[in-house]
Structures are given as structure tokens and as C-alpha cells.
């Protein structure tokens, strides 16, 4: 059987992130590369954060979905370079996050104000208000911070610019 790269990519595009099921592991930039070596498929993945507990599930999902198509040999290779960044999320993925109730990353990861600057003003993903406050840099998953909207009073997750 001749395995086509495009086919593998189209499978990967259908695999949702386990924590944020509205976007795929390709949207998120977790799936980095696909290589075909004869009968074997190798998929490079990179963790969002070093300790992301979803990585094992993602590996299993990839292997399972590819094997469902009749391919028997699938290998997952974890890479750390180039280092994962939210800059890889495209506008469409950001919009999906917003609709899901997660404020998408604002700005570029090269912004060095993280250490010294004040927390950014993040628009509430529900009502759009700018009157929001940072509750904690650390939210429900490693990649998110917790905010509260002072207009609609809803708490919400912000996907940290990283």
C-alpha cells in the first residue's frame, strides 16, 4: 500500500485537542511533521507546555486514528525544537476558541512585557467587554490563565500568549 502524506495530515486535522475539543492538534501546532518510511508512518509532535498531561492521550489518539485506516506501523516522535508558540494559531482557530468561551491569545509571544508589565487587557469572550481582571496566571490547564469579566460577571479562561 502506498501511503500518502496528505492523507495522514487530513486524519490529523480531524483529531481534536483533548482539553479544547473545538480545535485540532494541527490548528494548535502540536502535530509538526509527517514522514513516510516504506510501510511506516512517523508523526512528530511537540508539547505545548513541558508538563502538558494531554500529550499521552494525543499520542494514543494519533496512533489509533491512523491505524483505523489500515496502516499498521505508526511511530510518534516528540520534538522540542522549534519551541511551541501560540503564534502558530491562525485566525480561524482563534475564532473557534472565542466561540467556545476561551479568550484567544492576544499579541505575539515575543512581547517581553510578561515579566515586568501589567497584565494585558483581554476582551471577554462572552460579552466582548474590556472591563476584565486577571484572577490568576494559572488556570484550568497549563496553557490558560483565569480572568473575570466585570461587565457580565462571568469568569473565563484566557489562552495565554506563549
Amino acid at each position: 500500500m502506498l501511503i500518502q502524506k496528505e492523507k495522514i495530515w487530513s486524519i490529523l486535522k480531524e483529531i481534536p485537542d483533548p482539553e479544547i475539543p473545538v480545535i485540532s492538534i494541527v490548528d494548535l501546532g502540536i502535530a509538526r511533521d509527517v514522514r513516510i518510511e516504506g510501510e511506516k508512518v512517523i508523526v512528530d509532535i511537540t508539547p505545548t507546555y513541558s508538563g502538558c498531561p494531554a500529550m499521552n492521550t494525543i499520542e494514543k489518539d494519533i496512533i489509533e486514528k491512523i491505524k483505523e485506516t489500515g496502516i499498521e506501523r505508526v511511530e510518534i516522535n516528540t520534538v522540542f525544537s522549534p519551541v511551541w508558540t501560540t503564534d502558530w494559531l491562525n485566525d480561524e482557530a482563534k475564532e473557534k476558541l472565542r466561540e467556545y468561551g476561551i479568550a484567544p491569545p492576544d499579541g505575539k509571544s515575543t512581547d517581553k512585557s510578561l515579566l515586568t508589565g501589567k497584565p494585558k487587557i483581554i476582551n471577554c469572550p462572552r460579552c466582548g467587554s474590556k472591563k476584565t481582571v486577571l484572577v490568576s496566571q494559572f488556570g484550568s490547564t497549563a496553557c490558560k490563565a483565569l480572568y473575570k469579566c466585570e461587565s457580565c460577571l462571568e469568569p473565563f479562561d484566557y489562552f495565554k500568549c506563549h
Partner: peptide
């Protein structure tokens, strides 16, 4: 609660770094 989450989030980052 927020601090409980923060401390364990930091722990998670550190364990991830350690593993690599």
C-alpha cells in the same frame, strides 16, 4: 483555590521539564 491551582500548575511544568 486559585493558589492551589497555581502551585500544582507550576509543579506540572517542573515535572514536565524534569522528564525531558
Amino acid at each position: 483555590l486559585e493558589e492551589d491551582i497555581a502551585l500544582t500548575n507550576i509543579a506540572l511544568d517542573l515535572i514536565g521539564q524534569s522528564r525531558a
